Amino acid sequence: MVYDKQALDALALALIKAKESIAVAESVTAGHLQAALSGATKALQFFQGGITTYNIGQKTRHLSVDPVHALEVNSVSLKVSEQMALGVSRLFIADWGVGITGFASKAPAIGEMSLYAEYVVVKNGIMVHSGRIDAVKEEDSFKVQVYFTNQVLQILVTLLQGKIC
């Protein structure tokens, strides 16, 4: 399995036990979080769904991302990720929301040579955690996307187990 099964199982168990749900808004991970969560044991009991938005227009239309700010930062910032997380939790009526954006491949045309993701986790409309994940090595974009996905799954487990806030 390409996704962290141990983290998925722990996440599923924690969400089901708490009777809470989750939805995700993705850009850099291109649907990998949705694929991972939908494949978890008893996913129907906690996974509300998700959305992948690659451009500013779709982020603004579906997730209420501020287009002026998004243009200034090439859609990659904690503020954009927070707006994505808040938007998806509202859109899917979920207790938890995750927003993630970044670069899984270099973008020399805009001067971005680093591979990283900015993510935000919200619960009941309030940001509870945010951060940046740097790719540990330069690989193809698929491997980088999976790496970011697994990192977010592990972060979610830690949050749900009350170990970080």
Results as ranks from 00 to 15, higher is better:
residue 26 E to G: 01
residue 27 S to A: 05
residue 30 A to I: 03
residue 30 A to S: 12
residue 32 H to D: 09
residue 33 L to R: 09
residue 35 A to Q: 09
residue 35 A to I: 07
residue 36 A to Y: 09
residue 36 A to G: 11
residue 37 L to R: 00
residue 39 G to Y: 01
residue 40 A to Q: 06
residue 42 K to M: 13
residue 44 L to F: 08
residue 44 L to W: 03
residue 44 L to K: 12
residue 46 F to V: 04
residue 47 F to W: 05
residue 49 G to E: 00
residue 50 G to T: 09
residue 53 T to D: 06
residue 54 Y to P: 02
residue 55 N to L: 09
residue 55 N to D: 14
residue 56 I to W: 00
residue 61 R to C: 09
residue 63 L to Y: 08
residue 65 V to A: 06
residue 67 P to K: 12
residue 68 V to S: 13
residue 69 H to R: 07
residue 70 A to F: 11
residue 70 A to L: 14
residue 71 L to T: 09
residue 75 S to M: 02
residue 75 S to I: 01
residue 77 S to V: 03
residue 78 L to I: 15
residue 81 S to V: 06
residue 82 E to D: 09
residue 82 E to A: 14
residue 82 E to N: 13
residue 84 M to C: 09
residue 85 A to W: 06
residue 89 S to E: 02
residue 90 R to I: 10
residue 96 W to P: 05
residue 97 G to N: 09
residue 97 G to K: 10
residue 98 V to E: 08
residue 102 G to S: 10
residue 107 A to W: 14
residue 108 P to T: 07
residue 109 A to S: 12
residue 111 G to V: 06
residue 111 G to A: 11
residue 113 M to E: 10
residue 114 S to G: 07
residue 114 S to Q: 12
residue 114 S to M: 12
residue 114 S to R: 13
residue 117 A to D: 10
residue 118 E to W: 08
residue 118 E to G: 04
residue 120 V to Y: 00
residue 120 V to E: 00
residue 124 N to P: 01
residue 125 G to C: 11
residue 128 V to S: 05
residue 132 R to M: 11
residue 136 V to T: 11
residue 138 E to R: 12
residue 141 S to C: 07
residue 141 S to N: 03
residue 146 V to R: 12
residue 146 V to C: 07
residue 147 Y to R: 10
residue 148 F to V: 00
residue 150 N to Y: 04
residue 151 Q to E: 14
residue 152 V to P: 10
residue 152 V to W: 03
residue 153 L to T: 01
residue 157 V to A: 05
